[in-house]
Amino acid sequence: MPSSSTVPMTDHQHNDEEITPERLAQLAASYAADKKAIDLQVIDLRGVSSYTDFFVICSGNTDRQTKAIHDAIHEGLKKDHGQLPRRVEGVGESRWILMDYFDVVVHVFVPEVREFYRLEQLWGDVPRLDVDLLEVPQR
């Protein structure tokens, strides 16, 4: 999909709305922040990746916290915005959870796994979105 594409809403209550990949990344990061995710980064891959526009990368201190972050993102995007991931991997072990929303891929790690794979370093020269400006969704 071209980077200027929008992701259509899938929930019938939101069928007239569209959400951009950038907004989807911001929302996912906001839900993660609400669960006290640490070292939260949103990496802008538009123009450098053919399979996604944004990575949202964060950590939880424990596998229990990574699961809680996953749950918050999944439920928030589903209930509030009608968005469901194409696939989710890693929830059982909860050491690296990957949530694929097509134009946005969310990675939730425990710190030692994140340090081992170092995804941010692979994309060191691409822009980041300012996560300090994110709005935490009201529930």
Results as ranks from 00 to 15, higher is better:
Q26G: 03
Y51V: 15
Q41P: 01
H12E: 14
V7R: 13
K79R: 04
E89N: 13
F54G: 02
A72C: 10
T6C: 10
A29L: 03
H12A: 13
A72I: 04
A33N: 11
T52E: 08
K67E: 12
D63I: 09
D16Y: 12
E17S: 14
R46Y: 08
L77T: 02
A72E: 12
H70L: 06
L77M: 04
T20F: 07
L27C: 03
K67N: 14
V56A: 00
T66F: 06
P85S: 02
A28G: 05
Q41Y: 11
K67M: 09
E17C: 14
D34S: 07
A32M: 02
T6E: 12
L40D: 08
K35I: 04
A68R: 00
H74Y: 13
Y31F: 15
E18Q: 15
E75M: 12
S49Y: 03
S49W: 05
G76W: 01
D11V: 01
N61C: 10
L24G: 07
Y31I: 09
K36V: 06
A33Y: 04
R87P: 00
Q65E: 09
Q83T: 02
H12N: 13
D11M: 03
K67H: 15
G90A: 09
S3P: 08
A33S: 14
N61M: 12
E18M: 13
I38E: 11
D63R: 11
E17K: 15
V56Q: 01
K35N: 06
L77I: 04
S30W: 11
Q26K: 10
A25L: 10
L77C: 01
R86K: 15
H74K: 05
A68D: 01
D63V: 12
M9G: 03
K79E: 15
R64N: 12
H70Q: 11
S5H: 13
F54D: 05
Q26H: 01
N61H: 07
V48K: 02
R46W: 07
T62F: 09
H14G: 00
A29P: 02
S30V: 02
S50G: 10
T52H: 08
Q13N: 13
I38S: 15
R46F: 07
D53K: 09
I38C: 05
G82C: 07
R46N: 08
L84K: 04
A33T: 03
G82E: 10
P21A: 15
K35M: 07
D53S: 14
T52S: 14
E75I: 14
S49R: 01
T66L: 11
Q26S: 11
L24C: 10
A29C: 07
D16K: 14
